[in-house]
Amino acid sequence: MRSQARLYRRSAHTVAIAVAAVVLLVWTVFPFLWILLTSLKSPGDVISVPPAFVFTPTIDNYAALVIGEQRGQYSSTRPDFPRFFLNSMIISFGAVALAIAAGIPAAYALARFSFPLKNALGFVLMSFRFVPFIAFVIPLYILYQQVGLYNTHAGLILAYQLITLPFTIWMLRSFFMEIPLEIQEAAKIDGCSALGVLTRVILPLSMPGIAVTVILGFMFCWNAFNYPLMLAGRQTFPVTVGAIQFISYEQVLWGQMAAATIVAAVPQLVLSLMVQKYIVRGLTMGAVR
């Protein structure tokens, strides 16, 4: 009798755990599945009542994205999505390259030397992580229009340093600090200068960390929305701003918007699988290992 009651309790426990796991899975994955389905629907199927799980799939929405104009019954707005995608690539790569170039020596200085105002500098860099974007966008908007950086890739790459530079420095600093001091001391005894220690010891040893920093930095740039929203024009919009162009006063192109969100999401999904272990570390700027 008693063992049976225990058995019941145990199986109830198992069922509860299974239910919780399924709820968590559905909550996490269902939105992706639904948007994927929506992106494969014709305009009629998108607005069908009740929502259709079974329908004849079409790649029209993706074709429309690639061609950069609409097919079918709509024709008023024409978001140029291939260009947006290319813009995202150019701006993100440019911003990361610049941040890495400036960030490596800076991170090395912060990780290995003591100098006046070191803590203040670290604090200033960290605080960029928390600043409301508009605080920079308003003056940059005015400034960029005066100096001709408005609606240019260069201007956006510079503005994105607000995202990438503090992140890169903090992240690289945390990787550099993992390298044992003894190795550097040994290199110094062998006659390496400070720069030699950096290029011959630190950099080769922290290549994986640098790769992770590059990938995460790229992802943060890909996600950026506020800066390009105000500092870019139609020629330089990245995918994040491009995706909202499918909403206009006349209509919302649900199917194409779904396709656009999938295309904008794919690089993030692939990259986040590559750097799984480091994402939390990256999001906390190296505070959590």
Partner: peptide, 18 residues
């Protein structure tokens, strides 16, 4: 990790559709 690294705007648009 999938929702975590999504651009917030894209997340918003996905839910807007739903």
């Amino acid at each position: 990790l999938m929702p975590l690294m999504m651009p917030p705007v894209i997340t918003a648009l996905m839910w807007k559709i739903m």
